[in-house]
Design a protein around this nucleic acid. Structure first.
Length: 525
RNA sequence: GGCGAAGUAGCUCAGCUGGUUAGAGCGGUGGAAUCAUAAUCCAUAGGUCGGGGGUUCAAGUCCCUCCUUCGCUACCA
């Protein structure tokens, strides 16, 4: 068996429909997963929905719905989004699943066995309106000395029985982890934040709630449900079958990487490894906090601002692959990025339609018309051909994998584009349309050289635009077993040509996009 | 308030441990070509690298200060 690779998205909280941020994260994670498959690794990719907690129960209640039935519907929207966006997950884990409850209980009991859980009272300034506790220093003084939350709502001193996790005990182990494995938290800016946070001291964490019951019951402690983060994080284990011994868990845990949003870095980089250490389980290799996609004005997308963009509608409008390409190309992975219809149209037309799509089209068309649709024979390569091959080979064999290894996803595509540019420069310099009249053998060699290069570029970019890449490779007759990095760099052209394969009339891969005419409607966000 | 990040060509950004004429893509301009989705290729356009001060033979790259933007500052996820 090949090298295992386990990657996850964050587990989405479905108290609303998926927004562009969910789509972005799913796509980015999918691209990484697909790339590792391309490299021949055995990949597990887990995503899912985190359905417990007060907000879900409330949202359902407000809608007059049964909580689980509501969760079923909402979770469904996330699965629909994944299927729409061609997200190649292996497991979609729901926290309401019985298997997941079993896993959460197993993790809880493992932490309990380490003596890291204890029952105590949770006391603090509680805002009924916000349903949240606040620290003394966060409060402000209102009229008549009334204490107010940062949201301006009244708070009162409240005490509640709660299970606590000895997070304080893990301060030093965590700092040692960050020190010994600097790549554990990325990007660097997030790592620094976490470092400072942990260096500042850790208090024990309240890990159960008694104010609602929509969650995983704490074993042997009636009235308590687990703090949502305890069970949400457990999804990464339950998605592999934990605690079952004979499951993917034994092969794929620990995860190579958790892809999450920058807003939940602490839960993944502090609480999660602490829980795992407590339970005696191996720690994941890396937690990567990506940035947010901002609307053109630079505002964060949020429901309260009413500027939520439906990713399904975007995919319908521009196409799934162009949207995926845009997400990864335009945004420097790890940093915030911005989105606008204009930017999508510009980027996709320039790079997918004009540079790459047109390259394939002009090459295949010439073969179709000038070679009777048969793949042309190679009559000896010259130095120009060798230079192009060397260029492409370096790009797909070194530059792109290296950038992928660093999760510099936009640089991966940038490198790929440089290969596309090289092909366009080559075709113009060689001018096979002129060779047609002067040197037919050379024309054939040039077209064959391009054919090989285009197929290699198509395979290399297939994690980003899987459907389009397959469509092209289908047109080109590339057998499935060659659609991986090793295969496409190998010897397949001559056998394919000698097999008598013929092209169909080539058809464009990426139609040029146009801006929606009702343009300004979309800006009204 | 505390800690941190960032401010580089019209736009989006690269610029590692300081060292020849500060880079890329897009946009703009001028050519070439016509196989192709009016797509492509070539050339080019000068930005006092946020302001000021300092260290150094030498600073976008180190130090100080000021301005601006942003992030984190524990139990809503």
């Amino acid at each position: 068996m090949s090298d295992p690779f386990y990657i996850t998205t964050a587990i989405a909280y479905p108290n609303g429909k998926p927004h562009i941020g969910h789509a972005y994260e799913a796509v980015a994670t999918d691209v990484i997963a697909r790339f590792h498959r391309l490299m021949g690794r055995d990949v597990r990719f887990v995503t899912g929905t985190d359905e417990h907690g007060l907000k879900m129960a409330q949202t359902a209640r407000d809608a007059g719905r049964d909580t689980l039935e509501f969760a079923d519907e909402m979770s469904g929207y996330f699965r629909d989004m994944c299927s729409k966006l061609n997200i190649s997950y292996d497991v979609f884990m729901r926290t309401s699943d019985a298997r997941h409850h079993a896993a959460s209980i197993a993790l809880w009991q493992a932490m309990e066995a380490s003596g890291d859980l204890y029952l105590d009272r949770y006391e603090g300034w509680y805002s009924v309106r916000d349903e949240a506790y606040y620290g003394e220093e966060e409060l402000t003084e209102g009229e008549g000395g009334v204490k107010l939350s940062p949201q301006g709502t009244p708070v009162e001193w409240t005490a509640e029985e709660s299970w606590f996790f000895r997070l304080s005990k893990y301060q030093d182990p965590l700092l040692a982890l960050y020190r010994d494995r600097p790549e554990f938290i990325r990007p660097e800016s997030r790592r620094n934040e976490v470092l400072r946070f942990v260096e500042g001291g850790l208090k024990d964490l309240s890990v159960s709630r008694t104010s609602f019951d929509w969650g995983v019951r704490v074993p042997g402690s009636p009235g308590h449900v687990m703090y949502v983060w305890v069970d949400a994080l457990t999804t990464y284990l339950s998605g592999l079958g934990y605690p079952e011994k004979d499951s993917d868990y034994s092969r794929f845990w620990p995860a190579n990487i958790h892809i999450i949003g920058k807003d939940i870095v602490r839960f993944h980089a502090v609480y999660w490894p602490a829980f795992l250490m407590s339970a005696g389980l191996p720690l994941p290799g890396q937690v990567f906090g990506h940035g947010f996609l901002l609307a053109r004005g630079g505002e964060k997308m949020s429901k309260s601002l009413g500027n939520v963009v439906d990713p399904i509608a975007l995919a319908d409008q521009f196409g799934v692959d162009p949207l995926r390409y845009f997400f990864l190309r335009e945004v420097s992975f790890g940093q915030d990025g911005s989105y606008s219809p204009q930017a999508i149209v510009n980027r996709c037309n320039a790079e997918l339609a004009n540079s790459f799509g047109n390259l394939a089209q002009r090459t295949l068309s010439q073969i179709f018309k000038n070679c009777d649709a048969y793949l042309p024979a190679v009559h000896g390569h010259n130095a120009d051909d060798a230079a192009l091959f060397a260029d492409i080979d370096r790009i797909i064999g070194e530059t792109m994998p290296t950038a992928f290894g660093e999760l510099a996803l936009s640089q991966v595509i940038e490198a790929w584009m440089s290969g596309v540019f090289a092909c366009n420069a080559y075709i113009d310099a060689q001018a096979p349309w002129t060779l047609k009249k002067t040197d037919i053998n050379r024309m054939e060699t040039v077209l064959a050289t391009l054919y090989i290069s285009i197929a290699q570029l198509a395979v290399a970019i297939s994690p980003v635009i899987p459907a389009s890449a397959d469509l092209l490779l289908d047109q080109m007759g590339i057998p499935p077993e060659y659609r991986n990095l090793a295969g496409i760099r190998g010897h397949w052209y001559s056998p394919l040509a000698e097999s008598g394969f013929r092209l169909e009339q080539p058809s464009g891969l990426f139609p040029r996009l146009e801006l929606p005419t009702t343009d300004d409607q979309g800006d009204d966000i």
